[in-house]
Simulated scan of single mutants.
Amino acid sequence: MPRSHPTIVFTLFLVVFLDLVGFGMIIPVFPFYAERIGVSPSAVIFFIGLYSAGQLLGAPLWGSLSDRIGRRPVLLFTLVANTVSTWLLAYADTGLTLALSRVVAGLAAGNISTAYAYTTDITTDATRPKALGLLGAAFGMGFILGPALGGLLAGGTDENTASLTRVAHTAAILSLAALVLTALRLPESLPPEKRRQPHAPRLSPAVFLSRPALRGLLTATFVVISAVALMQSALALFSAERLGVGPRMLGWIYAFSGAVSVAVQAGVIGRLTARFGARRLAVTGVVLVAIGMAGIPPASTIPFLLISLAVFSIGSALFNPSISGLVAAAAQPHERGGVLGAYQAASSLGRVVGPVLGSGVASLAGLGAPFVLGAAICLGGLIFVARDTRQAKSETAAGS
């Protein structure tokens, strides 16, 4: 298969984009959906964390499996599971069925590690930052159109008049479209000779953590994503209580944040990486994320909130592709799925810990407290980003 073939890269972009639009549609309506079937407001953040708990289990599983059997079968199976889980959400009428739909969706979303591995399979060191930025832009665009579309489809100005089931049905249809596109347009990216052989020992996340450089990168990912998830899980409730916004306006707020992220990742991340290097961009991204989070609690108007979210989104757009590129560079082709699975597992663990921590802090100190704590935690990740990314590059060169 031609390496970094533009058509294949763009097709993968579309697959991830469609899947993420469906996911993004759920975000602004989920708190209202959960409360409508009897989940208390304080427990909503916990239910959001269930999705990441499933992703935590799925990411290393799918990444490692794709190293053995190839990327395409894993992508196809997980897209089927995601479609089913979203339809289950449409018919959820108890806390148990709601929780089941979120866990299954999270397990399926662990396929992001496989999508990242697919991207690294078809790119070179020179073209990889731009391709990873494009993949990140698919996430960002999913968060532009997804929440906005979800808010529009829900309709109404409050939770009592919104049609939340319609949103879940549409999200399932988009996941099904991503499945069809994968089946028809995405060839296998990992040839048999580059796969991990059946007799080779299983590479678990614990194996990668034994490598000092990867341990630092994965720890940095966990710390920063914990802080980000803590903020994201509290944003909907904060905006509703402090600013009085409903599902539709909240969708536009998320869309704005996604637009800023896309502008950075699709437009300039490749050139910035070539000029400044991934390590510097990762460090800068962490600082901007922390500043953006710290600016949210004082926000008393929507424009003030949008300014803080813009700073946050620029930082996130710099950090995510930079740290994932550094992790990918620290892996050999036959283990890249497993390494990126460990990276996604670290991200997912952060998305589990962050909402749980945010729920506790919000109940004790109010809805503004999670953002301040998140900024402080995020800055703690600077220690690992600045210290270990140079070592990752040197270890990779020594092992190749």
Rank of each mutant, 00 (worst) to 15 (best):
P355H: 14
V268M: 14
V207L: 09
L250E: 11
S347A: 11
I45L: 14
L357D: 12
A229S: 15
A386L: 01
Q344G: 03
F384K: 02
S226K: 07
F47R: 03
I8F: 06
I112E: 09
T396R: 12
A362H: 08
A108C: 09
A398S: 11
H199Y: 10
D19L: 13
S348C: 05
Y51D: 03
L379C: 02
S66H: 01
T396P: 02
A227W: 04
F32G: 06
A397E: 15
V103K: 02
R68G: 10
V260F: 03
P6T: 12
F30H: 01
L309W: 03
G156C: 01
T7F: 12
L379M: 08
S239V: 13
T124W: 05
L382D: 04
T120R: 14
S324A: 15
M141E: 06
T119A: 15
L145I: 15
R72P: 01
L179V: 08
Y118C: 05
A263V: 10
A229Y: 15
D125G: 10
W87K: 10
I27H: 04
A266F: 13
R3K: 13
G368D: 00
E188P: 01
S52F: 10
V356C: 06
L75Q: 01
R387G: 08
I383E: 01
I225W: 12
P192Y: 13
V353S: 15
N320F: 13
L96N: 09
P201C: 07
Q344F: 00
R387C: 08
A328R: 07
R36Q: 08
A206I: 14
L107G: 05
N82E: 10
R390P: 03
S324V: 10
A200G: 05
P192Q: 13
T127K: 05
